[in-house]
């Protein structure tokens, strides 16, 4: 027990001084299927394009997370400023059977991000879902419209400040009671 903890104390400062591992200029954290890249919005398209050239041909998933009520999420690597929104992209490399996750920080006051559509056409529906439910606008998307909620819906339901039951049920063309 004491030997281990003293070992940790010795190791801790060293790991901090070791320069952050980078992949195409973005810091990488984690191992195996949890390998995570942290990226800003600028240059995200080039990053995804470079990863595609590395063999990450397929984009598996794209979703958004609202960190409004969980601001002290597990520490982000140095140089990455935590923002309210995060867009999480999962890519897969079939030839060496690896996955990679990209976490893109998107600020609350300007919830926009370049679309990944030119590199992975599959994100069309996923980005529409992220727009619909989380209110993140993907610049350059061919059809930035609601996908699951009705076109005339107000608000973005998956945001943390859109609470369950707070907003009255919206029916089309039925006058409200008040």
């Amino acid at each position: 027990m004491t030997a281990e903890s003293s070992q940790e104390e010795i190791d801790a400062p060293e790991t901090e001084s070791v320069p952050q591992e980078l992949l195409h200029g973005a810091p990488v954290v984690g191992e195996g299927t949890d390998r995570t890249l942290f990226a800003g919005r600028e240059g995200i398209l080039d990053l995804v394009r470079a990863l595609r050239a590395d063999g990450f041909y397929q984009c598996i998933d794209l979703c958004a997370v609202d960190y409004l009520t969980h601001p002290c999420r597990p520490a982000l690597p140095a140089g990455i400023e935590p923002e309210r929104f995060e867009v999480v992209v999962h890519l897969i490399n079939h030839s060496d059977r690896t996955r990679i996750r990209i976490r893109v920080q998107v600020p609350a006051e300007d919830a926009t991000m370049p679309t990944l559509f030119p590199v992975h056409p599959t994100v069309e529906a996923m980005e529409r879902e992220a727009f619909d439910l989380m209110g993140i606008h993907f610049v350059g998307h061919p059809d930035m419209s609601r996908i699951l909620m009705p076109d005339d819906w107000n608000g973005h339901p998956l945001r943390k400040d859109y609470e369950v039951g707070r907003i009255p049920v919206q029916f089309k063309s039925v006058p409200g009671a008040r």
């Binding site: 598996i60 997370v65 879902e129 998956l158």
Partner: peptide, 11 residues
């Protein structure tokens, strides 16, 4: 805190 499901039919 957030639960997202990647549904194959959706894609």
């Amino acid at each position: 805190y957030r639960m997202h499901v990647r549904g194959p039919s959706f894609v």
